[in-house]
Every structure is written in C-alpha cells, then in structure tokens.
Design a binder for these strands. Structure first.
Length: 960
RNA sequence: GGGCGCAUAGCUCAGUUGGUUAGAGCGUUUGCAUGACACGCAAAAGGUCAGAGGUUCGACUCCUCUUGCGCCCACCA
C-alpha cells in the first residue's frame, strides 16, 4: 500500500522556494521551451515596478492577477509569455537617492558629486532595489520569463527611446518650445501636467488697490510685473477704459497698466477686474500669448526672485511675501485681507514640494499635429489607412472608441476619453540626471538628432526624458523594437495589460500613444485595471500611518498562495480592496483544507495516477472513464457538480472574472467535495459498491483531485504543485507494489485515454528540477475540459434531498441536545415514492452522517420531532417537549403560509402566467406544490402533538 | 464647476444580460477530539438589499430624485 507520508498541515515555507526553483529550472517560463504544438500566443508585459525600493501590496495584486492569467493560458496550450522588467522611474529614484545622500550629510548632492559620480550612486541604488524586487516577485510565484527581463534604462531600451524620438521629431511631433511648464524647485526639474497633484490649503488672500480697482491674489510675490488689467468686454463699469493705459502705484513705484477686454475676467468676481502674471500662471500665459504681452519671469528655478523684482531680487519668493505686503501696506494699497482663504496648492507628486509654473525652453510632444499614419501589415488597426492624416490624440481616441482596446471595468472608457479631450502637449524633457538623455546635439546654432553626433564639437542637450517616455514604449521595447524581431511578430500586440487604475493616464494612455504611432498597432487588446489595496479602515497604506501590510511578511507567515487568494477573491476590477491579515489567514486555512482533502484522497486510495498527459493541448477530462461503470448517487452527483464547476470556472477565467472563478472553486472544494462527497465516501455502503465494481470510487476521487489541482493551480501554484508531486509519488509507490495491478489493467481495458499515460516515475519534491521530471510539473499540464455529459440533474436533485434530510435530522439532534455519539431512531412518512426510494437506497449514508439507528424504525411512536421536507416527513424519536415543538411548528407554518399566499397570488395573476417565460412559471408551480406538501406535513404534525399532549397532560400533567 | 464610483448580515464583500423563500468568508452562539484537516466538524442566530418615487406580470438588479462616503479631472484673478 502507498504509505501516506504527507505531513498533517501544509507548511508553505517548506515548499515554496523549492517549487519556484523547479519551475525556473524547467525553463517553462520561457514559452519557446514549452512542450507541444502551440500556435496561439498569449502575452503580458509586466508593469515594471520602480527601482525605488521594495514591493508593496499593489505589486502583489498585480503579480497575482497576471500570474493567474499566464498560468491559465499556459495550461490551455498557449504560447504564454510574461515579460518581467523594472522601471528606472527617473524622478522618483533620483529624489529618493538625493534624500539618502542628504541623510548622509550632503547639502546639495548633485553639486557636490557631479553628474558622473552622482549617477553612479543612483545606479548602485537601482541595482540593489532591482534585486530585492526580483526576489519578491519570485516569492509571489510569478511565472515570469526571466530570460527576457528588461529595464527601462538599459541599452536596448535606449535604442528604442532614441529611435522613437528621432522619428517623432522628423514627423514634426516633437518640438522645442519656450513655454510655461510645471517646475519643482526641490527636484529641480519640470513635471508633466499629470505629475502635479493638488492639495487643499488654507492661506491668506490679499486684496490690493491697483489704480482705480481692487485686485485679489494669493501670491503677492508674483505681482511685480503685472502691467495688464483685464476686464470683461460686457462690463459697463470699465467699458470706457478699454484700450487705454493708466499709471498705477505699485510695489516698486508707478507702472503703466494697459486695460484689455477679455472674457477671461468674470464680472461678478471681486471687482470684476484682474491683473495677470503671464510667467507664472498657465491661464495668464495663454492670455499673454493671445495678446502678445511681455512674459516676465519673476521667480527663477531656485525659487528666488529675479531682477524683475527690483530691490527684492535674489530673495526667496516665499520668504519675501511678507515684506512685499508690508511695502504695499505702507503705501496704503492693501484693501483688505482674507485669512481663511482655501485654495488648491499644486505640489510635486513625488516630493510634495509646491510646484512653480514658470517659462522654460523645453521639448514637447504635439498631440494635435496631423501626420501620415504608418499602418502595420502584421496586426493592422481598423479604421485607419496607411498614409492617412491622423493626430496622436485622434489615434488614442480611435483605438478605444472602436473597441480595438477594451478597458475593464468599462466605466473607465469615459474617464479615458475625458482625459484625452483635455490633453495638452506633453512636456517630455526633465532637468534630472537620471534617465535617458535627450538625443539632441547642438553646435553653434545647429542641431542634430541621434544617439551620437556625426562629427566633433557637438554638445548634447543636458536634459533627460520623462520616465514615461521610455515606459510608454514598454510593450514594444521589451519585445525588441526598433528591430523587427521574432518576439514582436509572435507576441505583439500583447493580450492584456493589467495594472492599477491610478496609472491609466500616466502609463496606459502613453503606451497607446507610443505604440499606435511607432508600430501602427495597438499595444494590447484588453486593459484590466485593478483597485488600490487599502488597510482595514479603508485608508491608503503609507509609512507615516504605519498601516502597511507587507506582502513578504504575509508570505512568510501564511504562504504565497494564501496571500494571492486574499488579493484575488472578493475583489473586483477598478474597485479598491480592504485587506487585513485575518483575510490572509482565512485563505491560509483554505490552503490547508485543500492539502488535507488531497491527503485524505491519497491515503484512502490504493493507487493514484495523475491524469492529463496531453501536454500542450487540452486534456479530456477522464471522468468519462467511469461513465460506463456503475456509479452511486453520490458519484453521479459529484461528477455532475464538478463538470459544471469546471465549465463555470473556465468561463469566468476567460472573462477575467477571477474572484468569481475562485469563489466557485472554493465553494465546490470545501462545501461540496469535502463536506459531502468525502464524508459520503467514508460510508461503508459506498465503499462496498466500490469493491464490487472495482476501484471505482477511488478512481473518481483521484480524477477529481487531479483536475481540481489543475483548476486551482493558477490561483495557488505552490500548494497545488506540491500536492501534484505527492500524487506522483503515491502513484509511484503503488507501482512498486504489484498487487494492485488490476487497477491499471482495468483502466487499460476500458481504454481510458486520460489515465493510460506514460507512468515514468516522478521524483520527490526537491528533485523536481531534474529534466525527466520537468514534463510532469503541474504548471504545464493541460487545463481540464468540462465533460458536460456528466451533468445529471436528477442526481443533483436526489442528492440535494439526501443533504436536506441529513441536515434536518442533525438540526433536530442539535436542538434537543442529543449526545453526538448516540444514534436516534427515525421513521419516514411520505406519499412520494421517488423520494422514499432515494432515501431508502441511500439510507446508510443518512445513517452514518446523521447518526441514525434505523430509518424505518417501529420504535418511533407517539410524539416526535419532525423534519418536514416537501411531501416527506422524517420523524425522529426523541423525548420531545410538546410546547417547544409546537412553537417551532407554528413558526414554520406561518412562514410557509406566507410563501404559499404570495406564490399563489403570482400564479393566479394572468399577466404573470402569460408574460413570464414558461420555465419560470413551471418552477414556481413546482415550488408551490412543494410548499403545500410541507404545510400539510406541518399541520399533521401539529395535530399529532396536540392530541398526544392532551392525552398525556390528562394522565401525567406534564411532559418530561 | 464637470465626471465617476460605492451604500446588501456585526465586519469584509459576492450577486454576469430583471424571475432564489438574497449568498460567502470572518466574527458571534451552541455542541463535538467523528479514522484528511481544531488552520477542523456539526447546528444556529443575524438582512424592510441607504431612502423616496417610477418602469414591469415581476426590481438587490433598469430609470429619476434625495441622503451619506469616496475618487478623478478642471480650476477660482
């Protein structure tokens, strides 16, 4: 006999690292090495984590979800590729290293170290982070193809960046312009519009007398060069001033102010007149451009006042505010002050520093400029012809509008369009050091685009590119672009892009922009957006709140599988999830449950063979191996249920409904397989049937187990792989013992394709890396196909009756506090021959699971506790308290009467009967019948109690 | 200001084209060392599906409005 050497509890730590090593050495993470004919590709590129430190729960969800997709695709025989990589995250990484260096005592790390030495420090930090991240991804079980690992700042990606830049420049889409941009004085760099965040802040708001009017501002320090007064064209109060100039006393003495009419001024706002600051406000800048006003820079890149501030030049702008107000105060120009003004302060999304809008000469991508579209011959986009004039904005809109890219959940389509419609030209140059250098060279007014200059004397643009420029190319740069590689042909467009909804604009939209432009293809077909992981109270996890749940810690304590499940089940795309350690522990319990289910099946079976040899194809479920044999009701029930669940789970996974797939699997595994079928399998009669007809039950059990492990594998790769190896061991042991050879023979004679497999020995855990055993890894087994011919509605109904009967008897036992070990007598009473037959045929199951002595015992007389199931009444012989029993029955009766009334009313409604589908009407009639039967049973029982207790009361006065 | 989301059992959430006597996990109560599992087993309690209207034979599900919470975008000189 196969010895059960499987430990009692699943200790994730003892398996996970070995399992991952076995997968990795098998080479199967690389789709080129997968066995079998694989014609269909499935590809995902990993959203590259920033090399700023360690992985958090957001990364963990991402890894869990994507691994489910990839493992599922791989098991379905697809060429499944998941490309790993990391993001240099220019601004974030540089800021982080700068902070570290300042902690080490440096005041201005960039200046103190110089460009080269500074970059070395950043790179060392990035390398360290990279290693940590890779290790963490492995801990999660991510089946990433490490042989294709990429980095947004490596040489290959640099070629992609330069190629894209050059082509966009040639198409006139990249231009250099002196425009107002967001400047972070701390990062000393510009930011893209969406890299600016807003924080509500209470501040002082000043009202100053400006000539004849009062103007308001929250920022007096920007007001030095305000020389234009804007009024509304319809504003009668100021109509006579328009076009005129007037002398106005101001901070540094009198200035000449021009009055201009424009709708930008709102009449009912304050005085209805305003001055503008073109150099430090986006709105004012646009106005200045419109009218050709001077754009005078007041604040410089260090946050100091410029020469335009006269005597204040060189002072820190913020610090000078008070002084400036004091000057105006002295001149009597301060009208009044509002101390409780609330405004939106714009801050840097990386360091939180207040952002200063100021004009700078920068590189931009023009999103509105028409250019001729270059169509792809490999995966052409619908609705755009080669050479057709398009804009980047138009392309981004088009591919989503036409459904060539679908976003899940679909409400994000609207958000996406709204964002595109508001999109301005994208500022792509940064004054950071860490990043792709702008591939532009200058010499005496000349300019050259490219990686290297053609001749001497050229100087490269000192700026680097926005980190999103390189990550925007991610789907194609990881697959080899700008070269026309095999990978690009085979794996592009990628199947799905899975990421958090918070970077839909930053990244997803930019990839769409870059790829539709560069390749004329969509970068991916589907976008799956997961929600944010929050703490139990729904707060964002952050260091300052100390509410971070570390995925590594969860893996350490509860296992990677439990961590994965806790992030997948109970979550829906686009919605945030609250996570707690208890939730992870709950799934740890489930992993252990699965472990013990397998342990039971493996130890109770004489021999076990994992099924499903057809690697690279879809295995036919081997349940049909049993169909010709005699199956018990429970067998037929579980086979039917399993076929259904297999089908449902597969469909859910196809539709990216991971939570529902997992939930259905869990319910089946725990509430049906373990709680019922395994319990039934312990009933002697069920075992006898097996003995009589061969190892039938065992066969069914192991078949279900092996398919169940396959279904669970994408969700819980570690436990399932560990159990799979144990199954293989068990089967191995069995082969050594020749006594059970009949099992194999009997299988061969039935010609069961599923089980008659190459039974090459599978090694123990830890040896799995051996070449000859790699083929036996669960990760490459074929996904089960639901055998819907196993669906058996009659068996499901009959077994449900059995379950109800057992539960009802148990309920009565619990209520009357019957000793758990003692058996009770039971008598059935029914007009339904079929129901009676089902219970009689399976009475041993009832006997065992409900602890029943005899099912038609004559000992059951007088008053009983009754379980009433439709036309079936089960009397349980007990010392009954008639008063309590009556109360119970009254409650049940009232409920039943209410149900019958409403149901009857519906059925008597002509509209319902004529308009509702026949199926619904039929179902309702059947339920009504059932309820009537039950009501009858209840009333009968009430009468019995009444008559019994009256005689009894007459005799002894009281029960018990 | 514009847009979006969420309100279902004490807590966390499912509920797929409208048809269940509304589900799960955790927690709670009661009982149990039953031959895989106490990370377990059995039984149970707990919901006017936020509120008000409407459409429909029928609404947790669709529409309108209200209330509360949250998010995104724009932005107020």
């Amino acid at each position: 006999m196969a010895k059960n050497t499987i430990p009692k509890a699943y200790e994730s730590k003892q398996y996970e690292d070995d399992m991952y090593a076995a997968w990795e050495t098998s080479g199967f993470f690389n789709p080129d090495q997968l066995p079998g004919e694989r014609t269909e590709s499935f590809s995902i590129v990993l959203p590259p984590p920033n090399v700023t430190g360690t992985l958090h729960m957001g990364h963990a969800v991402m890894l869990a979800l994507e691994d489910i997709m990839v493992r599922f695709a791989r098991m379905r025989g697809k060429r499944a590729l998941w490309v790993p990589g990391t993001d240099h995250a220019a601004i974030a990484t540089q800021a982080k290293v700068e902070r570290l260096l300042m902690k080490e005592g440096m005041k201005d790390p960039r200046r103190e170290l110089g460009r080269e030495a500074f970059l070395k420090r950043v790179e060392a930090f990035a390398a360290e982070s990279h290693d940590i991240i890779v290790n963490q991804a492995k801990k999660m079980g991510a089946s990433l193809d490490w042989s294709r690992e990429a980095f947004t700042l490596d040489a290959q990606r640099n070629r992609a960046v330069n190629a894209a830049f050059k082509r966009m420049h040639e198409d006139g889409l990249i231009y250099r312009g002196d425009r107002i941009v967001n400047w972070c004085p701390r990062c000393k760099s510009t930011l893209a519009d969406d890299e600016v965040e807003y924080r509500e802040e209470k501040t002082t708001f000043y009202y100053f007398t400006y000539g004849p009017v009062v103007i308001g501002t929250a920022r007096p320090e920007t007001k030095f060069a305000d020389k234009v007064l804007i009024v509304h064209p319809d504003d009668a109060r100021y109509a006579s001033w328009v076009g005129k100039e007037m002398e106005v006393e101001w901070i540094e003495g009198p200035v000449m102010a021009k009055v201009v009419a424009d709708e930008a001024a709102e009449m009912d706002m304050g005085s209805g007149a305003m001055t503008i600051t073109p150099a430090h406000s986006f709105v004012d800048f646009d106005l200045a451009k419109k009218y050709g006003f001077d754009i005078v820079k007041i604040i410089d890149e260090d946050g100091n006042l410029t020469a335009a501030a006269g005597s204040f030049a060189g002072k820190n702008a913020h610090a000078a505010r008070e002084e400036i107000v004091a000057v105006l105060q002295k001149k009597g120009l301060v009208d009044h002050v509002d101390e409780n003004y609330v405004h939106n302060l714009s801050v840097c999304y990386r360091c939180g520093e207040a952002v200063e809008p100021l004009p700078k000469l920068q590189w931009f991508i023009d999103v509105n400029k028409p250019f001729p579209f270059r169509a792809s011959s490999h995966a052409p986009m619908e609705g755009v012809k080669d050479g057709q004039e398009v804009t980047l904005k138009g392309l981004m809109r088009h591919v989503v509008e036409t459904g060539q890219i679908e976003i899940l959940p679909d409400r994000f389509h609207k958000t996406y369009f709204h964002w595109i419609d508001n999109l301005r030209d994208w500022n792509i140059s940064r004054q950071l050091w860490y990043g792709h250098r702008v591939p532009v060279w200058y010499r005496e007014g000349e300019m050259q685009i490219g990686e290297k200059p053609q001749s001497d004397g050229w100087e490269q643009d000192p700026d680097t590119l926005d980190t999103w420029f390189s990550s925007g190319l991610w789907t194609i740069s990881t697959l080899g672009w700008p070269d026309q590689t095999q990978d690009l042909r085979v794996y592009h467009p990628t199947s799905v892009l899975e990421t958090g909804y918070d970077i839909l604009f930053f990244w997803v939209a930019r990839m769409i922009l870059m790829t539709t432009y560069a390749l004329g293809e969509v970068p991916f077909r589907h976008v799956y957006l997961h929600g944010l992981i929050r703490d139990e109270q729904g707060r964002k996890m952050s260091k300052s709140l100390e509410n971070i749940i570390d995925p590594l810690e969860m893996i350490e304590k509860h296992g990677a599988d439990a961590t994965r499940l806790s992030l997948v089940i109970g979550t829906t795309p686009g919605n945030d999830t609250k996570l707690s350690e208890e939730k992870v522990a709950a799934y740890r319990n489930f992993a252990n449950k699965l472990w013990n289910i397998a342990r039971y099946i493996l130890s109770s079976s004489s021999r076990v063979t994992p099924t499903g040899p057809a690697i690279g194809g879809e295995a036919e479920s081997s349940l049909d191996a049993q169909s010709s044999r005699e199956m018990t009701l429970a067998d037929r029930w579980i086979a039917s249920r399993f076929a259904r669940v297999t089908d449902e789970v597969t469909r859910h996974l196809e539709r990216y409904e991971f939570s529902q797939a997992g939930e259905k699997l869990r319910d089946f595994t725990w509430n049906e397989l373990a709680d019922w079928y395994l319990e039934v399998s312990k009933v002697p009669s069920q075992q006898r049937a097996s003995l009589a007809g061969g190892p039938l039950r065992t066969d069914l059990l192991t078949t279900i187990l092996s398919d169940l492990l396959k279904l669970w594998h994408p969700f819980m790769p570690f436990v399932t792989e560990a159990l799979w190896s144990h199954m293989a061991i068990a089967s191995d042991d069995a082969n050594d013992v020749g006594a059970e050879g009949s099992f194999r023979r009997s299988l061969d004679s039935t010609g069961s394709a599923g089980l008659a497999r190459d039974d090459s020995p599978v090694s123990a855990v830890g040896d799995l890396a051996r070449d000859d055993s790699a083929q036996n890894l669960l990760m490459i087994q074929s996904w089960p196909i639901a055998d819907l011919s196993q669906k058996d509605e009659q068996a499901e109904r009959d077994f449900a009756l059995l379950q109800q009967a057992i539960t009802a008897i148990r309920n009565i036992r619990a209520q009357y506090q019957i000793e758990p070990k003692s058996f009770v007598d039971v008598r059935m009473e029914t007009t339904d021959d079929h129901a009676a037959g089902v219970l009689e045929e399976n009475w041993e199951i009832v006997q065992t699971l409900a602890k029943v002595k005899d099912i038609r015992s004559d000992a059951v007389q007088g008053v009983t506790a009754a379980a009433i199931l439709g036309p079936l009444t089960i009397h349980v012989a007990l010392p009954v308290d008639p008063v309590a029993e009556r109360a119970r029955l009254v409650k049940a009766r009232d409920e039943k009467v209410r149900y019958i009334q409403t149901t009857q009313a519906k059925l008597e409604n002509g509209d319902f009967v004529s308009k509702a589908p026949a199926r619904v009407v039929e179902e309702m009639r059947a339920k009504l019948e059932m309820a009537r039967g039950e009501l009858e049973g209840i009333e009968k029982q009430m009468q019995e109690i009444a008559s019994f207790s009256s005689t009894r009361f007459a005799r002894s006065g009281s029960s018990q």
